[in-house]
Write a protein that binds this DNA or RNA. Structure first.
Length: 812
RNA sequence: GCGGAUGUGGCGAAACUGGCAGACGCGCAGGUUUCAGGUUCCUGUGGGCAACCAUGCAGGUUCAAGUCCUGUCAUCCGCACCA
């Protein structure tokens, strides 16, 4: 039995020395960029999830390398972020110190994993030579008008006196102190991702991504086509509403504004008798936290303003309400309420006793209100009788003609808020000057360094705001006194472009050279968890498109193909978590069996994209399998009795199994179907063992067959295969070999087994020559001893032959 | 509420465009090796004595359904008043 630990160490050192894992630019024409999502540097050891992401994907990469691709598989660290800062607040250990320590630890473990990472391209997002370019990226977006400042609602924890990221808000409460999180207006930097909404949506079609992920992005972007309609308000102002159902416009019973709508103030002035009630409602709505407000189950609330608006087509007066079921952030922040044909309006109207006017009739059936589907228009003047689509066209055309409305497309997607009132991130490279306003830091002055000596314990402001040395600077435009932006960038900004930096990691003059980027990118295969569907994966696509429009890259999409690994659950079937106490650590398994066996088990025991509950019964069997392979190889190499040199049926049979395995593996690895690939190798090993047990065998043939086994095994158990390859008497790395290629000739058999059915029931199995014609097959089947009695005296109505598989005789 | 996925032996799972359901492995049983335990190797292993019955459940299409269609239940994931 091999000492896996020393074998792994031996080969890792050899690979390091021979630069086996380093991308060779000379072969760039054959490049294949295989990327795993980089890691957050945690203090804990690598967990099963890391192994499950990186181990099998590395096998994929190695397989492609053996197929002749020049594989680029870099690794790095997404090193800024909240956990390090929270840890610092709790323990007083500086985020930089803990992060660097964690990176060192994690990098060592990643190296011990033996994956084919090209460490020469390693990046750490918290280092100056990286975040300098993150800041540069911000400036490019700013120049392009894609970064802007505005007031926005943020999560505010009154206990910690700080802003929280959405992820830190658990059930409406602060994850640290448990206080109820409030919403607060603050001026923030945003990236204008909404400018790209349409392209982000339409380009999904061309991506080789899981359909589920594409659908999630599609829903997230949330395109809806409709119409904006103007209602004149009694104050003389115009209330513009957005609707996807202009066909229901004759059924408008009232108009609703979101409580935050700017017109509220004016309406209050116009109707002082209601001012108190309005104020109370606005206050009530602002205090409701997101969880309550967003719940569909919540009862509708609202208040009458006393004001009215004029219906643009009927000229009738309709009352104006405030209600928080209308979201200020979507559409125009105002809706026309059609009580009969919208569930929410119906519920509101019912509660407050408002009129309900039916204007749509169900086609062929009784109309039950609220009726929200398409139907035939009634009570709609000249538009009566029209149906859904036609009515929408006709009515929006009429409104447009009157200057009272126009077609409009809205997206659910909002601009990306990137300011964080936090310390451990890339400082936003902006300067605030009393005279010149907001001024970008000149590129030559980058990076804006993140100072070390900062009080990062929360006090209600960004930690950097209290650091005088950082804050005070001179205005690059007027040279006068100015201050820096005290906020840092969301870490998703760092990870939105890292795949570009990998390709040109040591470039000191640029973030990347366009030439290099265009050679190395896009990423051919990107592997990571599906939890990033609407965050990282969307941001990265947006940034790529923005960079393309700036002429900095020449491709539209960063990740051509995307694969999500499944999740390995705890043995109890739940997500692993400390609180549940069901966390399985890979350490003891690595210690006992080594990294090859551990990764092989991960590949064999689970369906890669599904994952599933952890179970360690299987890992022992993998260790046994590896032992068996080793014994088989050693025995064959020691075997001096080479026997004879003929190729008999036994050799042909072995060759068949081998080539069947090669063919299957070649297809399955491409699909990330590792469990079936390993199964085919096991079958081949079983066949080799059977052959080995023969009294006589062709020694040279057997040795060659075993060398093929080692090649086949190499991507899955790289260290072990190298050792076997050496035992076989080879000097070079097995990874300089090419993966065995299927010999189709070996897969042709003289005879195939057919299942024979009579009236669709299996009755017999028999061997039929591959060359037989359909007529011959039919004759053979009918004459067969088990079949003949069953069809005797009956007419064969039909004979279905599936070549190489089955024959179905329909008799009556 | 909306959208999506999944449901197959005692267990992890296979099954490419409808074509022999359960590959491969675990476990289990019997044998073998060993002083003994582990190990090795061999054989068997969905259920039922059988005809037959079996892919969550109920229908349907088809010569043929795990696979296609309709309905339904359960679990998981995403979104959640988006007008």
């Amino acid at each position: 039995m091999m000492d896996m630990k020393s074998v792994e160490k031996k080969w890792q050192e050899k690979w390091e020395k021979s630069r086996l894992n380093v991308f060779n630019k000379k072969n760039a024409d054959k490049k294949l960029y295989v990327l795993e999502m980089f890691s957050y540097p945690s203090a804990a050891n690598l967990h099963v999830g890391h192994w499950y992401n990186y181990g099998p994907t590395d096998s994929y990469a190695r397989f492609k390398k053996m197929q002749g691709y020049e594989v680029f598989q870099p690794m790095g660290f997404d090193a800024f972020g909240l956990p390090a800062e929270n840890y610092a607040i709790k323990t007083g250990i500086h985020p930089k110190d803990s992060t660097e320590k964690n990176i060192a630890l994690m990098e060592r473990q990643l190296r011990n994993m033996g994956a084919m990472f090209d460490w020469t391209a390693e990046i750490k997002t918290c280092e100056e030579n990286y975040y300098k370019w993150t800041q540069w990226l911000f400036l490019q977006l700013y120049k392009k008008g894609l970064a802007y400042r505005k007031e926005a609602l943020v999560n505010w924890c009154p206990g910690c006196e700080t802003v929280l990221a959405n992820e830190q808000v658990i059930d409406g409460k602060c994850e640290r102190c448990g206080n109820t999180v409030l919403r607060k207006d603050m001026t923030q930097w945003f990236f204008k991702i909404t400018d790209y909404a349409e392209e982000l949506l339409s380009d999904l079609d061309g991506l080789d991504w899981p359909e589920k992920t594409k659908l999630m992005q599609k829903n997230w972007i949330g395109k809806s086509t409709g119409c904006e309609i103007d209602f004149e308000c009694e104050t003389g102002d115009t209330i513009t509403v957005f609707t996807t159902r202009p066909d229901t416009v004759f059924g408008v019973n009232y108009v609703v504004l979101a409580p935050e709508h700017p017109l509220v103030e004016k309406l209050k002035t116009a109707h002082p008798e209601n001012a108190k009630a309005i104020d109370a409602y606005v206050q009530y709505a602002s205090e409701a936290n997101d969880i309550d407000r967003l719940s569909t189950a919540r009862e509708k609330t609202g208040v009458a303003t006393g004001a009215y608006a004029i219906h643009p087509l009927t000229q009738k007066k309709v009352p104006i309400y405030l209600a928080d079921y209308v979201l200020y952030s979507y559409g125009t922040g105002a809706v026309m309420a059609v009580s009969a044909h919208d569930e929410r309006d119906y519920a509101f109207a019912t509660k407050y006793g408002l009129p309900i006017t039916q204007v749509i009739q169900k086609k062929g059936g009784e109309t039950v209100l609220p009726f929200c589907e398409d139907g035939i228009l009634v009570n709609s003047g000249e538009f009566d009788g029209l149906s859904g689509e036609d009515a929408r066209d006709a009515i929006s055309a009429k409104l447009a003609k009157l200057g009272k409305g126009s077609k409009k497309v809205n997206y659910r997607l909002r601009d990306w808020s990137v300011s964080r009132q936090r310390y451990w991130g890339a400082p936003i490279p902006m300067i605030h000057c009393e005279k010149c306003g907001v001024v970008p830091v000149p590129e030559k002055d980058l990076p804006v360094k993140l100072p070390y000596d900062v009080e990062f314990r929360p006090n209600g402001k960004s930690p950097l705001a209290s650091h005088d040395g950082f804050m005070h600077c001179t205005c690059p435009e007027c040279g006068g006194k100015a201050t820096r932006d005290p906020d840092t960038l969301d870490t998703f900004v760092c990870s939105s472009w890292y795949y570009l930096r990998y390709a040109d990691a040591h470039n000191e003059k640029q973030a990347w050279s366009k030439e290099v980027a265009d050679t190395m990118l896009p990423v051919d295969v990107y592997v990571g968890g599906s939890e990033h569907a609407c965050m990282h994966l969307l941001y990265a696509r947006f940034i790529t498109k923005a960079l393309r429009d700036m002429g900095l890259v020449s491709f539209d999409e960063p990740f051509k193909r995307l694969v999500h690994q499944g999740i390995i659950l705890g043995p109890d079937g739940n997500r692993m978590s400390k609180s549940r106490g069901n966390v399985v650590s890979p350490d003891k398994y690595i210690d006992e069996y080594g990294s090859d066996i551990f990764r092989l088990y991960l590949m064999f025991g689970f369906s890669y994209t599904e994952g599933g509950p952890w179970n360690d019964d299987g890992i022992k069997s993998i260790a046994k399998f590896i032992d068996r392979v080793e014994r088989l190889v050693r025995k064959a190499m020691d075997d001096k009795t080479s026997g004879y040199t003929d190729i008999r049926s036994a050799e042909k049979e072995l060759d068949y199994v081998k080539n069947y395995a090669i063919k299957s593996i070649t297809r399955d690895v491409e699909l990330f179907s590792f469990n079936t690939s390993v199964a085919r190798i096991m079958e081949y090993v079983n066949a080799l063992q059977k052959y080995d047990a023969l009294p006589e065998k062709n020694g040279a043939f057997f040795k060659a067959s075993l060398e093929d086994l080692v090649r086949m095994l190499a991507p899955f158990t790289p260290h072990f295969a190298e050792e076997l390859w050496e035992i076989c008497g080879n000097k070079d790395s097995v990874f300089t070999e090419s993966y065995p290629i299927v010999d189709e000739q070996a897969l042709i058999k003289a005879e195939t087994e057919y299942a024979v059915q009579v009236n669709s029931k299996i009755k017999a199995k028999l061997m039929i020559a591959e060359s037989a014609t359909e007529e011959e097959i039919k004759a053979t089947v009918c004459a067969h001893a088990e079949i003949a009695p069953l069809i005797e005296g009956k007419t064969i109505k039909k004979c279905i032959i599936v070549k190489g598989r089955l024959v179905n005789l329909i008799v009556g």
